[in-house]
Amino acid sequence: MKDVTIYTDGACSGNPGPGGWGAVLMYGENIKELSGGDRLTTNQKMELVAAVEALKALREPCNVTLYSDSAYLINCFRQKWYVNWQKNGWKNSKKEPVQNKELWQELLQLQDHHHVKWEKVKGHSGVDWNERCDELARAAIPK
């Protein structure tokens, strides 16, 4: 399997409000940038959409290291929050419906298709590819 590095980020102007997402995929010398936006969304949703769209862009199963500054995204996979969500009928620890359930389910399917290592990066700390994703996400916010 190919080794791919992905950086993702989401942004929102107001929360909820118009938002955007950005992703950078790297394989060897190849770099691909992706972005998109939504007129009414949340920052959390844009973080998840960035990861979904980046993983969906891969044409075959890959070993992926995915970097995000979203603690929500990274902690879900590292701490396996999704196991209890599924067991509890997609309810969180407060017995409330898990927000963005469909995106989480899609991420779980994509994670099964690829071997994904989820890595946290500190946002706005000068990490070049994370900063680039932030630029892509902010530029994709609908005006």
Rank of each mutant, 00 (worst) to 15 (best):
G22C: 01
G22R: 05
G22Y: 08
V24K: 06
L25G: 00
M26H: 04
Y27D: 04
G28P: 09
G28N: 07
G28V: 02
E29P: 04
E29N: 13
N30A: 12
N30F: 06
I31N: 06
E33I: 00
E33W: 05
L34I: 05
G37P: 05
T41W: 08
T41E: 05
T42H: 14
N43C: 14
N43I: 14
Q44T: 15
Q44H: 15
Q44M: 12
K45L: 05
K45D: 13
E47V: 11
E47S: 13
L48A: 00
L48D: 12
L48C: 14
V49S: 02
V49E: 07
A51C: 01
E53D: 14
A54L: 06
L55A: 07
L55W: 09
K56D: 09
K56C: 12
A57C: 03
L58A: 00
L58D: 13
R59W: 05
C62A: 14
N63R: 15
V64A: 11
L66H: 08
L66E: 07
L66I: 14
Y67P: 07
Y67Q: 03
S70W: 01
A71T: 11
Y72P: 02
I74R: 06
N75Q: 04
C76L: 04
C76N: 11
F77K: 02
Q79G: 02
K80W: 00
K80L: 07
W81Y: 02
Q86C: 05
K87S: 11
K87L: 14
N88E: 12
W90H: 09
W90L: 09
K91M: 04
K91T: 11
K91F: 07
N92P: 07
N92Q: 08
N92H: 10
K95F: 01
E96H: 06
P97E: 01
V98S: 02
V98H: 09
V98R: 03
Q99E: 11
Q99L: 15
K101C: 01
L103V: 11
Q105C: 10
E106V: 08
L108H: 07
L110Y: 12
L110R: 10
D112G: 15
H113M: 13
H113Y: 10
H114V: 03
H115F: 11
V116D: 06
V116R: 00
V116N: 00
V116Q: 06
K117N: 12
W118P: 11
W118E: 01
W118V: 06
E119D: 01
E119A: 04
K120M: 10
V121R: 01
K122G: 03
S125Q: 13
S125F: 13
G126K: 05
G126N: 13
G126L: 12
G126M: 01
G126S: 00
